[in-house]
Design a protein around this nucleic acid. Structure first.
Lengths: 224, 224
DNA sequence: TTGATGCTTCGTTGAAGGTCGAAGTATGAA
DNA sequence: TTCATACTTCGACCTTCAACGAAGCATCAA
């Protein structure tokens, strides 16, 4: 009867609207405080606290105390990909629920996904890197070629530092709007951060949207 | 506030134990009747009927009336992949819940996943086909090479017929036990069905397990 | 028609759990 | 110390919804 692991427990955690809002808010990879998440979810502080405890207990979030603040972030990449998969499913069928407002448009073009670039621009970058031979797909994974290493270094990424961490350098991530791969992993994060430093783009404070500057848009298209 | 589609509704549907059991039971791609699913979920008939209505309404299942029976199947491949993703997450963290019994062992080796071969044998086949140049990965998708076409035809697959359908010939599918790709799509289904016809294997009636015959095991290893 | 099977609908019960406010604990600032 | 901020815990309320049995419809077989 019980084949495979217990799906329903995890699914039930995501199944509450308030908790789903919390998880969605954390999809950009940032860590947020309990108060911020309470506002994001639209519930009281005590309610949020209870939800956060459950999510942490269920292994979906990891807490980190910092002074009198308590920050929460998604536990790992698996959680993020389950959420993206759910979004894809929900978007494709319950599609009537999604009204394509101006914000939605922006989100499809460029957004933050677990600290790396997602949306059509993310896919564009990924494809450019791949066809340029900077990255190469092996099985389900993706890895950086020597050619890609020199590009990244030239772009301003401190590859040596990234390599000291045990986190994977390159990863693929499937986003729900494009349904194609884009680049995740520590390199993906570093590239996004570098682009932000260069002033190509800036993050929207209240959402996952990424806003390219006019000059940034040009530079991005030229590079990728 | 509401970025992206409504996750929580879908997740809540999967979040009930009875419904999760129903969905899991349908993971092999077969269509089952309401009564069978009620037994599978361990609930009464009326309860199951209500659950099935909700799942259908939510777009996770598609019903098909046949005489006085009503068959239910997963609505599409997206639903199956969300379920597999959830299994992967649940297995990796709430792992304590999974006790590796003899049946579990069999499931990890070979099982049916939406009518194609999954588990370590599924991955073995996929890798063999890939390194033999029968299939080639492009981006996130996989496609059949001329070399692969002649292999499939020689194996007994009616490729011409498969191509008339609009369903994709080749697809990748990630399974939760191996965490690697195996072959899905109509070709994946056809290969499994051909192996069953040849007597290499048979399906377990009450689970997703696939049991290889001794001679089938030898033939499989020789081919892949 | 009569009976049997398969599923749906309805009404009721009961338990689970989301919500809030208030009080309690911890950390930092003045 | 004293106050303010950030979060947790507790208790009470209340909505939601899974579960069942009985009755109702539909289909098939004689």
């Amino acid at each position: 009867m019980k084949e495979g692991p217990d799906i329903s427990h995890v699914a039930a955690l995501i199944g509450d609207p308030a908790r789903a809002n919390i998880l969605t808010a954390l999809m950009d990879g940032r860590a947020l405080t309990a108060s911020e998440l309470a506002a994001e979810a639209g519930v009281g502080l005590s309610t949020a606290s209870s939800h956060l405890a459950k999510l942490t207990d269920g292994g979906l979030l990891v807490p980190r105390k910092q002074g009198r603040h308590k920050y929460f972030a998604l536990a790992n990449r698996d959680v993020a990909s389950v959420l993206e998969a759910l979004m894809g499913l929900a978007a494709s069928q319950g599609g009537a629920r999604v009204r394509p407002g101006p914000k939605d448009q922006t989100l499809r073009q460029a957004r933050v996904c677990y600290n790396h670039l997602a949306g059509s621009r993310g896919v564009q970058m990924y494809e450019a890197l791949r066809s340029a031979g900077a990255i190469i797909e092996t099985g389900d994974d993706v890895s950086l070629t020597p050619k890609g290493e020199s590009f990244a270094t030239g772009f301003g990424v401190d590859l040596a530092r990234l390599k000291t961490s045990k986190a994977p350098l390159c990863r693929t991530c499937l986003d729900w709007s494009e349904r194609r791969n884009h680049l995740a992993g520590s390199l993906g994060r570093a590239l996004l951060s570098e682009m932000e430093t260069r002033g190509w783009l800036r993050r929207d404070e209240n959402s996952r949207a990424i806003l390219f500057t006019p000059s940034g848009k040009v530079a991005f298209d030229k590079t990728f």
